[in-house]
């Protein structure tokens, strides 16, 4: 095979004249990371709320939460993204819709992808939170209530702190998933990491270097997340506590 390796391609100035190709990759990395982190905050906050609601005694609230999970979990991510990006702006009130469509396309792409990824992942986080709460000994809730804590206080101080400890490993993989899934944003034109790799191929005709570099950057993200979550697991470990449930 007559492939001509050329690793110095990353240092060459781009054809568009906006810095080096390495600079393109790093810009992509920045967008991937900020998109994923913003979406994760949305997923964690709304997923926790929905997961808690699935376990409350009120049937209406629990039903609403179940509908949320089924909705965001069962529609393909790509379809959800197109709905947020192409369909929803049309449904906004005229003035708001126009203002949105006249804003910077990058802002539109980022907002749509952030909300989409955040809510998609919230359904998965909610399932984990529900499972975590479900695996606590049933007497814990009664113990909190019997002391006079309100139901929200019991969730906040008694049930959720233990539930989150139990589900840290699956939450870590959801967190990793969000970085992987963020690549769908390329379909609406956001210049995140995987899109920059494609651009690099188009401009330099060095596909191996481009995709190896991008792969390494994704691996780097994974390692960083795993190390941080490991540290967190270690920090919140409960002395003398073995396993979940009783």
């Amino acid at each position: 095979m007559g492939y001509h390796w050329n690793w110095s391609v990353f240092l060459q100035p781009t054809a568009a004249g906006d810095g080096s190709y390495l600079g393109w990759l790093l810009t992509g990395l920045q967008w991937t990371v900020s998109l994923s982190l913003a979406a994760w905050l949305i997923a964690l906050a709304s997923g926790t709320l929905v997961g808690v609601l699935r376990t409350v005694p009120n049937r209406w609230l629990a039903g609403l939460a179940t509908a949320w999970v089924e909705l965001f979990r069962n529609i393909p991510l790509l379809v959800q993204l197109f709905i947020w990006y192409f369909v929803l702006p049309e449904l906004l009130p005229q003035r708001l819709g126009d203002a949105y469509k006249q804003s910077d396309p990058l802002v539109q792409q980022f907002l749509a992808a952030m909300v989409c990824l955040g809510l998609f992942t919230s359904a998965r986080v909610a399932e984990q939170v529900r499972a975590g709460i479900g695996s606590l000994p049933p007497g814990q809730k009664n113990a909190g209530l019997a002391l006079g804590l309100t139901l929200p206080q019991t969730y906040r101080h008694v049930m959720l702190p233990m539930a989150f400890r139990l589900i840290l490993p699956p939450l870590t993989s959801e967190f990793l998933n969000i970085f992987k899934n963020s690549a769908v944003a390329t379909t609406i034109g956001l210049i995140e990491l995987s899109r920059q790799a494609q651009q690099l191929v188009d401009y330099t005709a060095q596909p191996y270097e481009a995709f190896i570099a991008v792969t390494l950057l994704y691996v780097l993200i994974n390692l960083t997340v795993m190390i941080l979550m490991r540290r967190l697991e270690h920090r919140v470990r409960v002395p003398g506590f073995v396993g979940g449930g009783q």
């Binding site: 000994p137 007497g139 009664n142 113990a143 209530l145 019997a146 006079g148 702190p161």
Partner: peptide, 17 residues
Amino acid sequence: LRARVGMVFQHFELFPH
């Protein structure tokens, strides 16, 4: 009311964390 009535359970139910 519950704050004024103490309760002790079979499985202790201390908060492990």
